[in-house]
């Protein structure tokens, strides 16, 4: 199978959906001629024109609000928020308006829109360009939260997200755009709410999200030298969460390590840990463990940044502790 980057796979998904459905359009800062800060939308202006690939002012609330208004009239907008850190400017529109219109209006409204954004550390972009805020949005009923880790997943999930009738926060990772992986030429979709077992194993379950999936896979590879076979589960979508796949894996391994890049306190790992203790307590042979970022803002200095963000060694250490 051909290999393309996460960025290319994402762009292909957007292009295919724009060709398929003329109600799909893109709006965001610097997405047209400039192609987006991470060049995801490069070339789409030329292909689809300025009405459907719309540059906006630096006005996150207006961007996301416009997406909602258009969705209410049957469009399927894809709004890009350049950094998830900037979504804070639009959080009223996301949390109070988009997430709630359908419910508040008694099931009459359809907020069929995607907010594409990216988060994560690793580029020394400091505290306001490197956060992992997925837990915030997962906490808001009415939103779906998607967090793909591979080129294959990002393409299949962006297509499903655009077709979904619910509002979706689609969180990419700035250090995944250049990652390559196999992506079929023919069309495919990935259902929202379906986890993926990225690596099978029998000794320990590692549930990891976004870029941490890659690190978990590397750690799992290294652990084979100890004779440890780790199973790596990527939820891919946090809301809805594929509880069954996670619980089945715990049943098999009896041990659970959760890895994410967000700071540990109230991170999404807390939700997975609670799920396991509520529904898989008697399958567990050891206490649940979380490997996550320190409860600090993301620092600028590369050495400090890599200190607070979990790496392979931290994951390996976590697994070894679990296995006693």
């Amino acid at each position: 199978m051909r290999e393309i980057t996460y960025r290319e796979a994402l762009r292909e998904g957007l292009r295919e959906e724009m060709k398929r459905d003329e109600t799909v359009f893109l709006l965001g800062e610097d997405i047209a001629e400039f192609g987006g800060t991470y060049k995801v939308t490069q070339g789409l202006l030329e292909e689809f024109g300025p009405a459907r690939v719309r540059n906006t002012p630096i006005s996150e609330a207006a961007i996301v609000g416009a997406a909602l208004g258009a969705a209410l009239l049957g469009m399927r907008p894809v709004a890009e928020i350049m950094y998830i850190d900037f979504s804070t400017i639009a959080i009223d529109q996301i949390a109070n308006q988009i997430a709630k219109v359908r419910y508040m209006f008694g099931g009459k409204a359809r907020a069929s829109l995607v907010i594409r954004t990216q988060g994560g550390a690793g580029r020394s972009s400091a505290a306001q360009h490197a956060q992992s805020l997925e837990a915030w949005y997962s906490h808001i009923p009415g939103l779906k939260v998607v967090m793909p880790s591979t080129p294959y997943d990002v393409k299949g999930l962006i297509k499903s997200s655009i077709r979904d009738d619910n509002p979706i926060l689609f969180i990419e990772h700035k250090l995944l755009y250049n990652e390559k992986g196999p992506v079929p030429e023919e069309e495919y979709l990935i259902p929202i709410g379906k986890a993926d077992i990225k690596r099978e194993g029998k000794d320990v379950t590692i549930v990891a999200t976004s870029r941490m999936v890659l690190r978990a896979l590397k750690a799992a590879q290294a652990l084979t030298e100890d004779g440890v076979e780790a199973e790596v589960v990527d939820p891919r979508t946090l809301v809805p969460l594929d509880e069954e796949t996670i619980l089945q894996s715990i049943k098999k391994t009896g041990r659970l390590l959760i890895v994410h890049e967000a700071s540990k306190r109230c991170g999404f790992g807390a939700e997975i840990a609670a799920l396991a203790s509520e529904k898989a307590f008697y399958d567990l042979d050891a206490p649940i463990k979380r490997v996550a970022a320190a409860n600090t803002p993301v620092p600028f200095a590369p050495k400090m940044e890599s200190f607070v963000i979990p790496d392979e060694r931290a994951i390996i250490k976590g697994v070894r502790e679990l296995l006693g």
């Binding site: 997406a67 208004g69 258009a70 009239l73 308006q97 508040m104």
Partner: peptide, 19 residues
Amino acid sequence: GATGIVGAGLPIINGAALA
């Protein structure tokens, strides 16, 4: 609809007009 957050309707109306 009507929104309980002061000012929140203005960005949304733009989207309706854009559609």
